[in-house]
Amino acid sequence: MDRVPVQASILQANQEEATKNRTLFDREGSVAINLMSSPGSGKTSILESTIRLLKGSYRTGVIEGDLQTSLDAERIRALGVPSHQINTGTVCHLDARMVARALEEFPIAGLDLLFIENIGNLICPSSYYLGEHWRVIVCSVVEGADKPKKYPVMFNKADVVILNKMDLIEQSGADLQTLSRNVREVSPRARIFALSCRTGEGMGGWLEWLREVTGRRLSATSAKAGA
């Protein structure tokens, strides 16, 4: 019997595909953001209000992931922003191959900012790198302060954590201090923005962060073009 060393990541094929996606994002000068959360925490609503507030500043596109329906892509399109719907059927996460296929039909040329809205799920999407520059996790304050502790792997990989539905903080009796502390404990380096995309409260910090990462990318791209 022969023992043959393999020493390969189980996610090797996904990683290779993600690297190709990343190369494409970099070539086009698009900042790609993987937006993740549990179902119903407000990912699409955050995108809608972000798009409204950013309108005119950046050319934005959205790839939407859902098991069924193109309702989310239609909501984004209604705002005059190009969007593409991925339907996974029964699959509980987006992987790099699905995004690569979407990119064949959805040209990102000229986009400054590409949001990829993942399937609402705090478990499986964390394993699959899509080629994104940034990982943003949304957690609504009404989901309970212990959420980050229950899903530490997901939160640990976040660059930004948005605490949404701040307009419901009083009615729900949510404990923002404990929630923020729990985010900090599982994801010490993440930026945290507490906001309500419905009322607009707190959106400033999130938009400022988007401007920062998009501006950095834009100046890098124009420097390259000028070189």
Partner: peptide, 18 residues
């Protein structure tokens, strides 16, 4: 200060026997 994960994130195929 933040801690660094030094193991526990492995999803690795070590070897196969044929």
């Amino acid at each position: 200060l933040p801690l660094r994960v030094i193991s526990g994130e492995e999803l690795q195929i070590e070897y196969i026997e044929l």
